[in-house]
Design a protein around this nucleic acid. Structure first.
Length: 867
RNA sequence: GCCUGGGUGGCGGAACUGGUAGACGCAAGGGACUUAAAAUCCCUCGGGGCUUAGCCCUGUGCGAGUUCGAUUCUCGCCCUAGGCACCA
């Protein structure tokens, strides 16, 4: 055996071996228990980054661990291959997006292979391939048929830089989630998926996902945003012709109807122009509305929520009080939420209060806090808490909570309104004015309107021969061969193909099903394979997808369920959201942020390699190219190898927490692997031909018994840490302890059985570490004389009798403070332990002559004496 | 403002269900080996104190509470990260 650990040599060797022996290939096998483990697939940007390495390492350990436990493990990998960067790269490098994408896939695939991940590469998928998106188009047709996909003209979030529409989920604080530029409102015809039909179910089922992090569940609930209240109709006074005689509003506070003193309509509300048409206010209102439409959402938020509005010159009637109330249009009323109209109760809503104060509107208190009556005249802020009803006719004196229900009952009885629920969630707009995506299989005909592409014409291929335009807008509308089509309905020659493509989140909403039968050509997936593998037992990815991808996937799965294509509603049973990989930033006054390799360590501190200035160390932040606080996985692979890289990612922090990068920590991991290597090198000749000892611990003595017990304890701890909560950091710690103990063992005079104990310890270290550092484990496993892969060794069990202590250490407390300890035999009973505790010399000092009031004995652990 | 996490040594982090706080690693210091260095191996390592083979006090963000006993449970507060936010 080589004296020196040489990852460069052993890692490629075993990677090749695993591949040749097809060790990670799996098939549907009803005889075996399945385990479907999946990590979020990457966008093929060209290089994997540390976030991927961490994500996929966590997954790989679980996959290997579960496989060693005898489960049939599906562990696939693929590429989220449609998307904008390909187009941008195509424009700047003059390559085709397809070529750019496939080149990147090749490069990243080989990086993943170098990390030794246990993927079944036969199942690899790329979403930009027609054999993949064909079925997405197919499902679109099904959804269209069922009314689950529809087209409407609406205000959309428009990103000028990306030249495309964004879903609400893709707008973060008014900025594009991808490029970070401002998002504007624009009116466009768009395709939508009716995700709101499932709002209630998506929300309710949040509580049936115990394997998901609470954080993600709460974010999803938050996003869906269910509000319970009432829809109430306010009759319009002298409604103009052709206008509904009443305006419906949605409110969560039906208990405050008696306090409604004005109404606000969203500026985009269709009634706004209608109500003041032909009046003296028409022009002023139109100007006001136009002004608001120029205010984009983000600026509206920035200007400290200044509420502005304009009276329309019309009134409606409060249905319960008969009071005449003015109708305003106001910037804070949103057309997309509820009915686009708000009944304003200034006494009990802060926003309405501010508005009323600004425009001198009446404030009527209808809910009093129990102790003191409020006065609308002197109120300085809205009272939004619970209380007792006043000024509300027959409801006076009730608690406002019971009044909610009572008022709803009256509204329903008198046909003035009804109980209602409103969601924040809106339908998923999936149209993208981009080239590199799956074409939406629809045709526009002047005679027939919108016509679906016949199923037999699928897939609608993305034309390859295109010239991308520098502005970034899609070339598809310019390609005649693509656009021109005859109408499948009437045969007219001048029909036009839909040139929008689908949001790439559609592809990632079903790729987990596709993995089950990736080459199936009769449909999206083969039902029998999906029935066997799905749902995914464990899904792992970044928390940044907590809403977008995960909500869409849950929705899409429900669509498949409704269509009878799958037998489950939730795609992911357990979800692990791993923390970010972070590192401190470094910068110099002349060059701004610096890459780690641009910083030179000198005795006077850190200096910039380019100008020699001293370097400032900034906060620890998520690794990002823009901050330059990145470590290239290639560098780690070259310098330390895959095993060290994997080990550090797992050891530095538990998976759900952020990981702070530390070069010294990586060195430490490398040292540990070297230490194991030396341990094996020193012992292998002495134990190689010895059989591993597996008998009762009583059969060996001294350090060997200690080592034997430690070995079994380590198996116990590692299994528990991995199985229950994926805490690989503590699992690794446990193995380190065992290695530390084994390190001190002298073996030359050892008997056969004792050598067997050492062999057992060594075997155990190798097996327990094999999911984490598979290459060195495989190498050492063979060096120990095994012929088959360590993957086939099976996960070790432990002997219960080896976990029992030879002696127990009993801790003695006096009044809860630690005062002494002693050892007893394991079979000592409580009485005996108590006696020993009370006679312990050191303890007696603290008892002194105070009377002992109580003695608590915790079995096999502790005695607390209360004096 | 609302909803979730999280506050433990110089640092990353341990502590299973209320029972020895600080496992394991990093950094630091000391020693061994070496002509020397690297590598390696061994030891020390929360803070303070004392009459220093040892012993005492104190310590898990802050303040209360429950308990024989609290890093762990309850209440209030502070700080911090993330999410949502003019949602009626």
């Amino acid at each position: 055996m080589d004296e020196k650990y040489n990852p460069k040599e052993i890692e490629p060797k075993w990677q090749k071996y695993w591949e040749e022996k097809n060790l990670f290939k799996v098939d549907t096998d009803k005889e075996k228990e399945k385990y479907y483990l999946m990590e979020m697939f990457p966008y093929p940007s060209g290089k994997i980054h540390m976030g991927h390495v961490r994500n996929y390492t966590i997954g790989d350990v679980i996959a290997r661990y579960k496989a060693m436990q005898g489960l049939n493990v599906l562990h696939p990998m693929g590429w989220d291959a449609f998307g904008m960067p390909a187009e941008n790269a195509a424009i700047s490098n003059n390559t085709h997006p397809a070529k750019w994408t496939y080149d990147n896939i090749d490069a990243m695939r080989s990086q993943l292979k170098e990390l030794g991940f246990s993927y079944d590469w036969d199942r690899e998928i790329a979403t930009c391939l027609p054999e993949y998106y064909k079925w997405e188009q197919w499902l679109f047709l099904k959804m269209y048929e069922k009314g689950m996909a529809y087209r409407k003209e609406s205000f959309v979030n428009w990103c000028e830089t990306c030249q495309t529409v964004l879903a609400n989920e893709q707008v973060e604080a008014g900025l594009c989630w991808r490029c970070g530029k401002e998002v504007r409102q624009k009116i466009l015809w768009q395709w939508f998926f009716r995700i709101t039909d499932y709002a209630e179910d998506l929300l309710a089922c949040c509580d049936e996902l115990p394997g998901w992090p609470e954080k993600v569940i709460s974010m999803q609930k938050n996003w869906i945003g269910k509000s319970i209240g009432a829809e109430i109709r306010f009759p319009i006074e002298n409604p103009p012709d052709g206008v509904d005689p009443a305006i419906p509003v949605f409110t969560t506070r039906p208990d405050t109807v008696f306090g409604a003193t004005f109404m606000c309509l969203a500026p985009e509300h269709p009634l706004v122009p209608k109500l003041c048409s032909g009046t003296s206010r028409e022009k002023a209102v139109a100007d006001f509305v136009e002004g608001i439409s120029f205010q984009d959402r983000f600026l509206r938020a920035m200007e400290n929520y200044e509420k502005v509005g304009m009276f329309l010159g019309k009134y409606c009637v409060n249905p319960l009080t008969g009071r005449k109330i003015p109708i305003y249009t106001a910037n804070f009323a949103l057309m997309e939420y509820g009915t686009g109209a708000v009944m304003s109760v200034p006494a009990h809503d802060q926003r309405d209060f501010d508005f009323a104060k600004k425009y001198g509107l009446d404030i009527i208190v209808v809910v009093n806090p129990g102790n003191r009556p409020l006065d609308g005249e002197t109120l300085t802020e809205a009272y939004v808490d619970e209380g007792v009803m006043v000024n509300s006719g027959e409801f006076d004196g009730m608690s406002n909570n019971s009044a909610k229900d009572a008022i709803c009952t009256r509204l329903e009885k008198e046909n003035l309104g009804r109980r209602a629920v409103s969601f924040r969630l809106r339908d998923w707009g999936i149209s993208r004015q981009r080239y590199w995506g799956a074409p939406i299989p629809m045709i526009h005909c002047k005679a027939c309107g919108v016509v679906p592409v016949p199923e037999s014409d699928l897939p609608i291929l993305l034309p390859e021969n295109v010239n991308l335009l520098p502005g970034g807008q899609s070339p598809l509308p310019e390609i005649e061969e693509f656009k021109r089509v005859s109408c499948p309905g009437c045969g007219r020659e001048d029909a036009r193909r839909e040139t929008d493509t689908m949001d790439t989140f559609v592809e990632s909403s079903w790729y987990f099903e596709r993995y089950c039968s990736p080459k199936f050509d009769q449909g999206m997936f083969d039902r029998k394979d999906v029935d066997y593998w799905m749902p995914v037992d464990q899904y792992i990815g970044g928390v940044e997808h907590a809403i977008l991808h995960l909500l869409y996937s849950r929705y899409y799965t429900r669509v498949l369920h409704t269509l009878g294509m799958v037998g489950y509603k939730e795609p992911f049973t357990r979800l692990l959201t791993q923390g970010m990989v972070c590192k401190e930033t470094t910068s110099c006054p002349a060059h701004g942020f610096l890459f780690p390799e641009e910083v030179i360590r000198t005795e006077s501190g850190l200096t910039c390699s380019r100008c020699g200035n001293s370097v400032a160390v900034g906060r620890v932040e998520k690794m990002s190219k823009s901050k330059k606080n990145v470590i290239d996985p290639n560098y780690l692979l070259k310098r330390y190898g895959a095993d060290t890289t994997r080990l550090f990612c797992l050891f530095a922090a538990p998976p759900e927490r952020d990981l702070e990068w530390s070069e010294q920590g990586v060195d430490g991991s490398y040292r540990f692997l070297n230490r194991i290597w030396r341990l094996a090198a020193r012992l292998v000749e002495a134990v190689k031909d010895t059989e591993s000892f597996a008998g009762p611990p009583g059969d060996v003595d001294g350090v060997f018994r200690e080592l034997y017990k430690k070995t079994h304890e380590t198996v116990y701890r590692v299994t528990r840490d991995i199985e229950d909560r994926f805490h690989f950091n503590t699992a690794i710690s446990a193995v380190m302890e065992l290695v530390n103990l084994a390190y001190g063992i002298q073996i030359h005079d050892a008997a056969d059985r004792e050598r067997g104990v050492v062999r057992n310890a060594l075997d155990t270290v190798i097996i327990l570490l094999s999911p984490i550092v598979p290459h060195i484990a495989e190498e050492l496993w063979r060096i120990m004389g095994n012929n088959a892969s360590v993957l086939l060794a099976g996960w070790p069990g432990y002997r219960e009798d080896a976990l029992e202590k030879d002696e127990l250490t009993i801790v003695v407390q006096v009044n809860g403070k630690l005062r002494g300890r002693f050892n007893v035999a394991v079979d000592a009973d409580d009485e005996e332990i108590k006696k020993l505790a009370l006679s312990n010399e050191h303890v007696l000092k603290f008892i002194g002559n105070k009377p002992v009031q109580k003695v608590i004995v915790v079995k096999h652990k502790l005695v607390n004496i209360v004096v």
